[in-house]
Write a protein that binds this DNA or RNA. Sequence first.
DNA 1: CTGCATGCAAACCGTTTGCATCCCC
DNA 2: GGGGATGCAAACGGTTTGCATGCAG
Lengths: 139, 139
Amino acid sequence: MNAPTNMFRLTTQRQIILEELAKVRTHPTASELYDMVRKRLPRIGLGTVYRNLELMAENGMILKLEVGGTQKRFDATTDNHYHIRCTTCGKVDDIDVPVADSFIEKAGEASSYHILGHHVEFAGICPRCLNSRRTDSSY
Amino acid sequence: MNAPTNMFRLTTQRQIILEELAKVRTHPTASELYDMVRKRLPRIGLGTVYRNLELMAENGMILKLEVGGTQKRFDATTDNHYHIRCTTCGKVDDIDVPVADSFIEKAGEASSYHILGHHVEFAGICPRCLNSRRTDSSY
DNA sequence: CTGCATGCAAACCGTTTGCATCCCC
DNA sequence: GGGGATGCAAACGGTTTGCATGCAG
């Protein structure tokens, strides 16, 4: 048999979803991405976006971020890095805190699980939300 | 006015939900907890469980874990500690890796957010799932 | 021609909410 | 008696899925 053809086809939809995701640093949700993609492919279905994001995540082409909040978010940068989520507006940004690979080692010692990876999520309030909170004393 | 009465009443339902949650180390989902509570209060409604878990989380009596996976999980231990989630069966356990408070400091330097906290989640395969995988080479 | 991929819409599942009733203060 | 809490069921929002059609290889 020849070169494995089990790699999925790069259809127009897949290409554009990937392009739009790579364009932004904001880790959009599926429906945010849907809106972005729809500007270029008005007839695409939301199901197609979900299906392909799922597929690409399985293939390691993108990251599915299972962070807090109600919706899943997607990330075109696949190497491990940490995130910060605004507890007020829900936005998720990258944060430039060095990845602590030593964590994996410690986790291996501390647990009987077979460790696969780790993720750090900071919680905070983004500058924009901070600004609109001058009269609030709830933190 | 006298002592603030804005603390909610400790109804039977609330007490039992809290007790059942404190009993286990497994960070149950709302409906797992519902099943546990129902053994003692057969007529309790799922809505009541959700409502009270939400309330208790707001009051800092319990933790709402916004970890990966589709369902939220709850934790009666409120001090910061890290978790590990089995990517196969979805179970979430505590993991005894020391909390890196220095993270908060680094995050403050690295970001323009007002940092509130952080959470570390390890991913792995739990011993039980490892066992039922002898013939699998997918990792 | 054949099969994978798509668009569409309905189903699904976890969670939230409206409302009538209940119960504690 | 009054206000919060409950049980119940319906609504909700995000995600998944079934199916007929479309399109690339």
